[in-house]
Simulated scan of single mutants.
Amino acid sequence: MQALNNIDLVSALDTLLSLSAAFVLGGLIGLERQYRQRTAGLRTNVLVAVGAALFVDLANRLNGHEGAVHVMAYVVSGIGFLGAGVIMREDGNVRGLNTAATLWASAAVGAAAGADLLVEALAGTLFVLAANTLLRPIVNRLNRQPLDVPSAEVTYTVHVIAERNHQKLVLAQLEDELERSSYPTRDLDIHPFGEDATEIEATLAATSIEGDELDALVQRLAALPTVRQVFWSPSTSE
């Protein structure tokens, strides 16, 4: 019977509004992540936002503003465990930091919605989307600028194994593809590979790359009839 006594239609309507706002705003953030095929996509961001909103809304209803503030503190620390799960380290390259930060921001948006701060939740959503979309071209441009630092932590090298008789042609095609993708080279090394092949190693001047773009570049080079094998690899300097 206590459950029936706790029914408050006005309060329930307020909770429904908060959860709906968290669902929609978390969905907007998740759509951008899903479009880019990130680890935490649409459903994950929506669940994080709605979950945070529900926790804060319940605390606000049961214990007032002070209780909501306490729950927000737990949400901030607790979401770190979820974010850590999407961070991966592959061949010296850390991936998933931006996805983890986006999840953290989704929780903040949900917490704001749960606290009935809908304008603030909407503003937070817009800023998160701006960070993940408007800043992306700027970051890519900066990352592709040549960096004259011998001690760079991570360098990237494209390896092309081609027939020795067509070495010059393949080299020219490799340089054209790298130039078209705005990846200038820092070093270029050519050495024999077996009896009738040559390996071309192009070390990129950029210290940060988009793996998907470099994968596409490798596929285009691999389609050339005179190329036997193409791959790229990162390396770290201790």
Rank of each mutant, 00 (worst) to 15 (best):
L58W: 09
V170N: 06
Y74W: 05
V50R: 01
E195M: 08
R164H: 11
Y156S: 01
N63R: 11
M1Y: 09
L178K: 09
A108S: 09
E175M: 11
G83I: 01
A100D: 09
V218N: 06
R33Y: 05
G96A: 03
Q2L: 14
A216E: 12
V230F: 04
T236K: 11
N63G: 12
A68G: 08
L103V: 02
V227T: 12
S182H: 14
N93T: 15
E163D: 13
F23N: 02
I7T: 04
E120M: 11
I138C: 10
A12E: 14
L118H: 12
P234K: 07
L129T: 08
L214R: 04
A206Y: 02
D212W: 01
T39E: 13
L4S: 10
V109K: 00
P146E: 03
G78C: 08
A205N: 02
L134N: 00
F127Q: 01
G114T: 07
L17G: 11
L126H: 02
G110W: 08
D148H: 14
N98L: 01
G80H: 03
R95T: 15
N45Y: 02
R95C: 05
I7P: 00
T15S: 09
V149G: 00
R180A: 12
P234Q: 05
H70Y: 12
F193E: 12
L47R: 02
E120R: 04
L9T: 11
Q167P: 00
A84N: 04
G41W: 08
L135A: 14
A21C: 15
A84L: 11
